[in-house]
Design a protein around this nucleic acid. Structure first.
Lengths: 202, 202
DNA sequence: GTCTATAATTCGATAGAC
DNA sequence: GTCTATCGAATTATAGAC
């Protein structure tokens, strides 16, 4: 969301204020439109022209700012996804907490749908998806599960359930899964995740 | 796959139910190549030209046989995916049975990976995925779950876990999930699916 | 900074010779 | 049935005027 301000070529000669560029509004509009299009259509079908049209600017501006289509996608999904620190959660509640935060993240952030959709057909997208779950889910598993050596497998199981929920609810939009209330999902999936993390190996 | 013997009995005139054509081998080669490409690249990036090259025939043949790209995809994934009849399975073992058969299906059939990948970015693919879900998973849920009215929700939960496994294992290829042995997966996911189907609402 | 015009590819689809 | 040649449309990307 936040384009960090860099330089201010138009904000006068006094260097005291590294003010926002005049184009920051445009850049932000482009990124927002890009996230929407990538989330809705995937990488291939989301055209630069359509994104530019949504942002109500000229397609060539997208190229000027982000170089090429890959650069645009990278910029659009470069937002840091921070799963709240769950290390403080009670050990027998980590499953429910994880599902709750996961749901909140996906409902408020189109970026994740975009990444999942792109990850299904694009190598770069899949790798970025792997990164995120290594950085976000593995630490949780390392702390929650009894044998640290099993943490990757446990995290993989949790990922299968959480991403499966995201897939059926936000991408494929299976009606019954879409219809579920958040609390229902937490009530059903919480114990599953809890078990994947903390139960002894079956 | 099946290069069925192509004899000369071309029953020609009846367009609705043609016998074995001389071109059957070619058609089969096209479909096999199409499945591989769709599974590997998704709908948009799997080009007719590339598929034809894999099948070592001319791209125009694909058009001649299947009309257009959509027709090709439909033909490539039109195999009936038959989940074995689980109505005979013991009621407290339906979870494990379902996971076991699901795994077997995905490991031996590229078609399913193709459909999942396409479903992530293509409307038609997503709808076909929904169809299969309705025809295959819903009946199982209807029979296994205590309250038939809850069958769709239960089936949706099962789908989230099973398709999440397929996504992380066969599409995104998360290393820890790929590394799991089939028996481990059954041991972990079986109880989950069992609970989604038969446990009382939480 | 913004836009017009267009280059350079690539793809789906068609026409027609053999 | 098979292939060559090509059309027409869409795309990314570039060059340059204002």
């Amino acid at each position: 969301m936040n384009d960090s301000a860099s330089n201010g070529t138009d904000s006068g000669t006094d260097g005291t204020s590294p003010g926002p560029r005049r184009s920051d509004a445009t850049r932000a509009a482009i990124l927002e439109a890009a996230r929407e299009r990538f989330a809705a259509d995937g990488y291939e079908r989301a055209t630069i022209r359509a994104i530019a049209k949504d942002a109500r600017i000229d397609p060539s501006m997208v190229m000027r700012y982000y170089g090429n289509k890959e650069g645009l996608f990278a910029a659009a999904v470069s937002y840091d996804l921070k799963l709240p620190d769950l290390t403080s959660a009670a050990r027998d509640e980590v499953g429910r907490a994880l599902v709750t935060h996961f749901l909140a993240m996906w409902e408020e952030n189109e970026e994740l749908t975009a990444m999942l959709r792109v990850g299904a057909t694009n190598q770069g997208g899949a790798e970025r998806m792997q990164e995120i779950f290594r950085e976000q889910l593995l630490p949780v598993a390392r702390q929650a599960c009894p044998d640290p050596e099993q943490a990757p497998a446990r995290a993989g199981l949790v990922a299968s359930q959480l991403l499966g929920l995201a897939l059926t609810r936000y991408v494929l939009r299976f009606p019954p899964t879409v219809a579920l209330a958040r609390e229902e999902i937490v009530a059903w999936l919480g114990p599953t995740v809890q078990r994947y993390l903390t139960a002894p190996s079956p």
